[in-house]
Simulated assay, not measured.
Amino acid sequence: MTSIELKPPSATLLALEPFRAAVDYVAGQAPLTFPLPLGDGHPVLVFPGLGVSGAATSDLRQRLQRLGYEVYDWEQGVNFGPNGDHDLQLELLGDHLKQIHSLHRRLVSLVGWSFGGIYARQLAAKYPELVRQVITLATPVDDNSDATHAGWLLNVLSSGIAPMNLESTPHLDAAPSVPCASVYSKTDGIVAWEGCVSAESPSHRNIEVEDVSHFGMVHHPEVLRVVADLLAQDSHGSPLAVTQAVDR
């Protein structure tokens, strides 16, 4: 997708992000008011967002596990972004992906939140023979590093880590050949939603979820519904599972 001039979300959305994220978290803890499709047991690898570890995605992983998937954390600790040897980071993540694929002998779905989605896309581009699909949540797939507050936020939270430079990441918008879906919200307070979408194609879908915060992406029930629906589809986008309610 051709890069366009983008701006970060407004100061208002940024200021409201903590409050709205708390609201999304609470909404995610309430009983579901709609049924979810049960999974077919294939493995799912989940990547955390910038500045957080797998602990931040544990809630999402537990819910997907209860739906019947074999769910894995990325196991690389805190995601500090493209600092240091990015090729080495991808190699380590690739080894983890290979291990999961070898254990289950099935293609692996990759779910990446925020910058974690960049790693998911890059791995899928590098190892398409191992990947079933890629689902990104509020991920800046456009290579415009000025369209996000994420770098500034990480530098504030990291206290001493070298400033993040998205432009230093090779092939930031790697285009995988496997099916991809980009889930985004126009009320994202961290990443410009316009940078989260790519051109629609038979292998790529852009899916909007309304009134969801950036940090609420891994908790909001509507996001869970979208992810569950996508995981329950085969490589051609056809449903695999009968939809039914599950206990929280």
Rank of each mutant, 00 (worst) to 15 (best):
residue 41 G to H: 10
residue 123 L to Y: 05
residue 176 P to M: 08
residue 177 S to P: 11
residue 248 R to M: 11
residue 107 L to D: 08
residue 23 V to M: 12
residue 81 G to P: 06
residue 144 N to P: 00
residue 225 R to W: 11
residue 161 I to Y: 09
residue 234 D to C: 00
residue 162 A to Y: 04
residue 142 D to Y: 02
residue 246 V to C: 07
residue 175 A to N: 15
residue 156 V to D: 00
residue 122 Q to E: 07
residue 13 L to Q: 10
residue 84 G to Y: 02
residue 54 G to E: 00
residue 158 S to K: 04
residue 94 G to D: 01
residue 74 W to D: 07
residue 168 S to Q: 10
residue 31 P to W: 14
residue 88 L to H: 08
residue 28 G to Y: 10
residue 61 R to N: 01
residue 79 N to D: 03
residue 216 G to E: 06
residue 19 F to T: 14
residue 199 A to D: 15
residue 169 T to S: 11
residue 71 V to H: 12
residue 78 V to A: 05
residue 62 Q to A: 06
residue 49 G to E: 04
residue 2 T to A: 14
residue 56 A to S: 14
residue 60 L to K: 03
residue 68 G to S: 03
residue 219 H to I: 02
residue 222 E to A: 11
residue 212 V to L: 00
residue 164 M to Y: 15
residue 11 A to V: 13
residue 199 A to G: 14
residue 55 A to L: 07
residue 147 A to K: 13
residue 183 V to R: 07
residue 29 Q to C: 15
residue 72 Y to Q: 02
residue 93 L to S: 00
residue 50 L to W: 14
residue 122 Q to C: 12
residue 229 D to V: 03
residue 162 A to N: 08
residue 235 S to N: 08
residue 36 L to W: 13
residue 245 A to V: 13
residue 187 T to N: 04
residue 155 N to L: 02
residue 14 L to V: 01
residue 109 S to Y: 03
residue 240 L to K: 11
residue 237 G to W: 01
residue 160 G to P: 00
residue 133 Q to N: 11
residue 138 A to G: 07
residue 207 I to G: 03
residue 7 K to I: 05
residue 32 L to A: 05
residue 19 F to H: 13
residue 63 R to T: 04
residue 148 T to H: 05
residue 68 G to T: 03
residue 111 V to N: 09
residue 40 D to Q: 14
residue 15 A to C: 08
residue 103 L to E: 11
residue 19 F to S: 12
residue 110 L to G: 02
residue 50 L to S: 08
residue 51 G to R: 04
residue 248 R to S: 10
residue 100 I to A: 13
residue 41 G to E: 01
residue 183 V to M: 06
residue 45 L to I: 03
residue 12 T to H: 01
residue 223 V to W: 01
residue 146 D to S: 09
residue 159 S to I: 13
residue 144 N to L: 11
residue 218 V to Q: 10
residue 34 F to M: 09
residue 220 H to V: 04
residue 25 Y to E: 00
residue 53 S to A: 04
